[in-house]
């Protein structure tokens, strides 16, 4: 009897331990299968396993909720101002919430739950915009492979917070964990181009992004177009007109009706002929 009790008491924690151990090992096995070059480490990774993707996504969504000052948008909900926020539509926020409350007049529970929710279509004030940043950080900490957290977070840091150096550190951390994510390399290139005016670095990062997006053929046409435009512009700023011409020709091959690319090609050919 005593042995049975002992087995029961110790058996349960041992079972949980081995289940967790198996889960973690399975996780690592699949990572090796995917030939990930940089194995994420850390407590979140060990504790949550594959579940961390969902937690990271929840944190990422939080940043959107914060940007809209806690307003929860349901898919089936129609707002009088369409998708425009208050500062764009110019309508008072309270007017929208009254309209929503007028629905389902007889149902008190519906009325209460609607009154508890926030229906203002407003964004954070400029001085409050830093409030969204922690959620990108948490998202990347929980799941270092959550690419959107790095790209969107660094966009906020570089453009809204005027902190391009911090954005670059954040992105380079992301690139370490996701060496095949063209989005991260494109974002690094954008920051070097627009915020740091370092065209040499922007050229090399956009090149890497283009290689990755072309190799795996995952990127949409619009993304490829954007990277090619930046590549051509970076080369042109460095007075590498032949290189810029090549990128513009690639762009024209991708989007044959692009008039801006045609004009740019003409102007570059002219510059090359004149010996600039």
């Amino acid at each position: 009897m005593a042995v049975k009790k002992y087995v029961l008491i110790t058996g349960f924690p041992v079972l949980i331990f081995f289940t967790l151990l198996t889960a973690v090992n399975l996780d690592i096995f699949f990572l090796k299968e995917q030939k990930k070059l940089f194995m994420p480490k850390g407590i979140f990774y060990q504790v949550f396993g594959q579940f961390r993707h969902d937690i990271a996504a929840l944190f990422y969504i939080k940043s959107d909720e914060y940007y809209h000052r806690g307003t929860e948008h349901r898919f089936d909900e129609k707002h009088p101002g369409g998708n425009k926020c208050v500062e764009e539509s110019g309508e008072p926020a309270q007017e929208k919430s009254v309209n929503i409350l007028e629905e389902n007049n007889g149902d008190i529970f519906f009325k209460i739950s609607r009154a508890l929710q926030e229906h203002r279509l407003v964004h954070l004030e400029k001085t409050e915009r830093a409030e969204v940043i922690p959620w990108f950080f948490f998202s990347s900490e929980v799941d270092p492979e959550f690419i959107a957290a790095y790209t969107v977070g660094s966009f906020w840091l570089a453009t809204r917070m005027q902190k391009p150096d911090e954005a670059l550190i954040f992105l380079k951390k992301g690139a370490r964990y996701n060496p095949r994510a063209w989005q991260i390399f494109e974002q690094i290139g954008s920051i070097y181009f627009m915020a740091k005016n370092d065209y040499q670095k922007s050229l090399s990062y956009f090149k890497r992004a283009y290689e990755l997006m072309s190799g795996e053929n995952q990127a949409a046409l619009i993304d490829k177009k954007r990277v090619l435009i930046f590549l051509a512009a970076s080369a042109e700023r460095l007075n590498k007109y032949e290189q810029s011409l090549l990128y513009n020709e690639a762009l024209l091959a991708l989007v044959p009706e692009d008039e801006a690319a045609k004009a740019k090609i003409d102007s570059l050919r002219e510059k090359i002929e004149k010996g600039f």
């Binding site: 914060y66 830093a130 409030e131 940043i133 922690p134 959620w135 950080f137 948490f138 840091l157 917070m161 902190k163 911090e166 954005a167 550190i169 954040f170």
Partner: peptide, 12 residues
């Protein structure tokens, strides 16, 4: 906790 050198963050 300080995030990317930003101060005055309370909501999180």
């Amino acid at each position: 906790t300080v995030f990317f050198g930003l101060s005055d963050i309370y909501r999180y």
